[in-house]
Amino acid sequence: MELLGFIFQDHQFLPNVRIGDQLKLVTKLKGEKDKAQHQAEVRSITEHLGIETSYAKYPRQTSGGGKQRAAVAHAFIGNPQLILADKPTASLDPDRDHEIAQLICKVAKSTNKSAIMVTHHRSILP
């Protein structure tokens, strides 16, 4: 179990690696699991966040909101106790920023984790 998960202002994905492969890499780096377990963990979190279609795409093929949702998945993989979110909605339109903030809250509550979010948009806070 990890202590911290991070969600950055910019998604920080490698441009020439599929999103699903990047998420699988995180699971490999965070534990002693076999390939099937890595795949299952990534599939589970992408389904939970509604980004299954982003799994096989490159970041450039995904919307800004899709990339930020993938960044949320990235942060929650490895089961961290605390999520730190640095203005995770700064580059999104007003509808998407509220959606991402609510998503972080929803996932934190459903996984019994804590999240700290820095934002300039008070309207997105629950």
Rank of each mutant, 00 (worst) to 15 (best):
Y58F: 15
Q61W: 02
K24H: 01
I51C: 06
V72Y: 09
I83S: 10
A36N: 12
R69L: 10
S44E: 13
M1L: 09
I45E: 00
A56K: 14
L82E: 00
R69T: 05
K57M: 14
A40K: 08
L92D: 04
G78L: 04
I7A: 12
S123P: 03
F8S: 14
A85S: 11
Q12C: 12
S63C: 11
L125I: 15
R60V: 08
V42K: 03
K57T: 02
A36K: 12
I19V: 15
I124F: 09
L49W: 02
T46H: 02
F76N: 02
Q102T: 08
I116E: 05
Q22G: 07
E32K: 11
T46E: 03
A115N: 09
N112V: 01
K24V: 04
Q12R: 15
E52T: 13
D86E: 13
M117K: 08
P88E: 08
C105K: 13
H11C: 14
H121N: 15
A71E: 04
V17N: 04
L103Q: 05
H74N: 06
K87P: 07
P59Y: 06
E41Y: 01
V17L: 15
G31T: 02
K33D: 00
A85K: 01
A90N: 09
L49N: 04
Q81P: 00
V72W: 07
G50K: 09
L23C: 05
L125Y: 12
I116M: 14
Q61T: 05
F6Y: 15
F76M: 10
V72H: 10
L14H: 12
A36D: 12
Q37F: 02
H98A: 13
I51W: 03
K28V: 05
Q61S: 08
N16D: 14
V17M: 13
M1D: 07
Y58A: 02
V17K: 14
L3S: 06
Q68A: 11
L84M: 11
Q37N: 03
S44N: 11
L29I: 03
I83V: 13
P80F: 04
T53C: 02
K106W: 01
G78D: 05
G65P: 11
E2V: 01
H11F: 15
H38D: 01
P59I: 09
T119D: 07
K106V: 00
R60N: 12
L103R: 08
P80K: 07
E52Y: 00
D97E: 12
T27H: 01
I83Q: 07
T119S: 15
F8P: 13
